[in-house]
Design a protein around this nucleic acid. Sequence first.
DNA 1: AATGCAATGTTAGCATCTCTAACATAAGTT
DNA 2: AACTTATGTTAGAGATGCTAACATTGCATT
Lengths: 217, 217
Amino acid sequence: MTSLTFFEKDWIMENVKEPTRRERYHHGDLRAQLIEATQALVEEKGPDNFSVSEACRRAGVSTAAPYKHFKDKTEMLREVAMAGMIRQSQQMVAEIAPHPEGSQARIVALGRVYIRFATTEPGVFRLMFTWSGDEEADEQLQTLGDQKFEFVQMEVAKCHGRTEIADEDRQKAFLLWSFVHGLSFLTIDGKLADNKMPNDLEHVLVEIAERIVPEAS
Amino acid sequence: MTSLTFFEKDWIMENVKEPTRRERYHHGDLRAQLIEATQALVEEKGPDNFSVSEACRRAGVSTAAPYKHFKDKTEMLREVAMAGMIRQSQQMVAEIAPHPEGSQARIVALGRVYIRFATTEPGVFRLMFTWSGDEEADEQLQTLGDQKFEFVQMEVAKCHGRTEIADEDRQKAFLLWSFVHGLSFLTIDGKLADNKMPNDLEHVLVEIAERIVPEAS
DNA sequence: AATGCAATGTTAGCATCTCTAACATAAGTT
DNA sequence: AACTTATGTTAGAGATGCTAACATTGCATT
């Protein structure tokens, strides 16, 4: 019985002319669509100039609707930040895969992903890291960040032929992180116009990796 | 005549029970006081949560008053950012003074000032560098930043016994800047809790300087 | 299948914020 | 003393974050 009604529903969902999902009172997918709108707006206007109202307009919904899905504006933004964190992590593991374990190329790849993400999604990137305020709310965010950093530390350790993270690895990973983080922000904040930015980013990454994690372990 | 009235005024200003300057219709010093309030609020609430209204409350003035002195909210914030830029530069020149020209200690001192400023005035620091939006408005700000960067480049050049900036110096200054910039943001954004942060900041600064601008030129 | 509940929308409205317009007053000039 | 300019004030428009009260829908239980 239930299965039959399910089939009916499926049939309706797929064959009927799709009420565009907007004409219906219940949206069906509002939460996801609001997050999507939020992310888009964060990129377009920057995290500071994001407004819930505008996200509502985009989702074709009243301005009170989000509050059935999110506690407040902050929670909407954090959702986008979290998604960004995960996306960045995925890109990292994908990008180092082709390179042999313990190779410097892996370190370079990590840095490349970091900066590419920052320049490709500056709004989300800013959101992820410059969470001014809220103090304790971003526990999950912090956890994700910690995991990512430990991942980097592990890669550095492997470069030194270790299977566990030593103090030296921690230190070096930290140097690397600070560098790419700073480079990312200087880039997206437009401080590297003109002659300040080295022309070849890849070259810079290799150089910094060489200075901190030399190929000859 | 006029000089007499001036004297009278001075006498009033100094000997009469000071109408606290708030009881008077004309404030006398509103612009400066608004900037002061803005800076304080930027530190307390963060640049994003700063509101003109609150600055007005602090200055004891109506919410429309600022618009006789500033074009809009953005201009108030920019004023604070500019002042921060200048303050940071002054600290830099002061801190390198004791060290001999061309010494690595000078480079370390520059980094120390950069990070100290960021941690001491995180609100203003954020304002100075993560100016999301406005595009062309921050021309002056950009100019100040450029000057500072050139100053750093020159210091690096001196470390190599040069009196003019070479490409190598540009490159190295850029690496140094990226590093301290990233370190600053990671610190004020609280990403360096627990074991991630090396215990001794000074040591880290020396180490990174050694890696990029070795003492033995 | 009918009914009831929980989920998820909507409209109205409050408090706050930025910024403008019109007006008021102080200060300096002629 | 009268005029002008600078610098305040009050009133209010338009946007925003969020809440309260109400409406509609979907699902579950009967």
